[in-house]
Design a protein around this nucleic acid. Structure first.
Lengths: 113, 113
DNA sequence: TTGACAAGATACCAAAAGGTATCATATATT
DNA sequence: AATATATGATACCTTTTGGTATCTTGTCAA
């Protein structure tokens, strides 16, 4: 089994799956209910739901003959954490930009003298 | 051409490509330099770099006979923005949890009376 | 208990993804 | 000018992915 991070990223890489997450953000739904929002078979939707579950983005719990799918934060948190590594990088980029602008300003001042 | 969001998510969905981003966060690199960090052909690495570029995660600029690959914020910002939609959802979840705890506390208080 | 109905399980298929090998082109270097 | 080097461009191969069709199982309801 590949690691959690990979499964979360993989789960998010498909537009149908991201759309499912949007639907589930409004209300929990059975597999059939999710399917009704898409132009594909229930079996295909179920596959997507399984992948979302493996990516820790939803939980699926049994209730009678139904399966209730509901959103779950863990997966998104995992990818957010990974992306946070780059925060300092972007900051650095912004600092460089600001530095460049400062230099430019000073240069102009010197010309004025 | 699929939309920007999809291309960014797609680009991030491969572990090699995420690793490339980590390398580029330390320094800009030519295609050959990136390749040296991986156990695959230069051609394969180039494909990954192209996909990263399409996902707005890096920029590739020509310099003589070389191509300098450097990190670029736009792509990550795009996915961050998408994920931000769910912030309120997680807040809601936390509120529900807090509400449940409050009720529980009140219940205990009533029992005490 | 006997149909409906929701979901599980497989088998199968076409397209996309990740990779290699190979040849061509552009730019340095001597 | 001739050679080495960095990259571009294709063709090709295997595995994964997204999807369907079909059959079985579990559960609700009359």
């Amino acid at each position: 089994m590949t690691d959690k991070l990979q499964q979360s990223f993989k789960a998010l890489a498909d537009p149908s799956r991201r759309e499912i997450l949007l639907h589930l953000s409004k209300q929990d739904m059975t597999i059939k209910e999710v399917s009704e929002h898409f132009d594909m078979t229930r079996a295909a939707v179920k596959k997507h739901l399984t992948i979302l579950q493996q990516g820790n983005l939803i939980s699926i719990e049994k209730s009678g003959r139904e399966r209730i799918n509901s959103l779950k934060p863990e997966g998104l948190k995992t990818v957010t954490n990974w992306m946070a590594y780059f925060d300092s990088f972007w900051d650095q980029k912004l600092n460089n930009l600001q530095q460049a602008m400062t230099n430019y300003t000073q240069e102009k001042d010197q010309i004025k003298k």
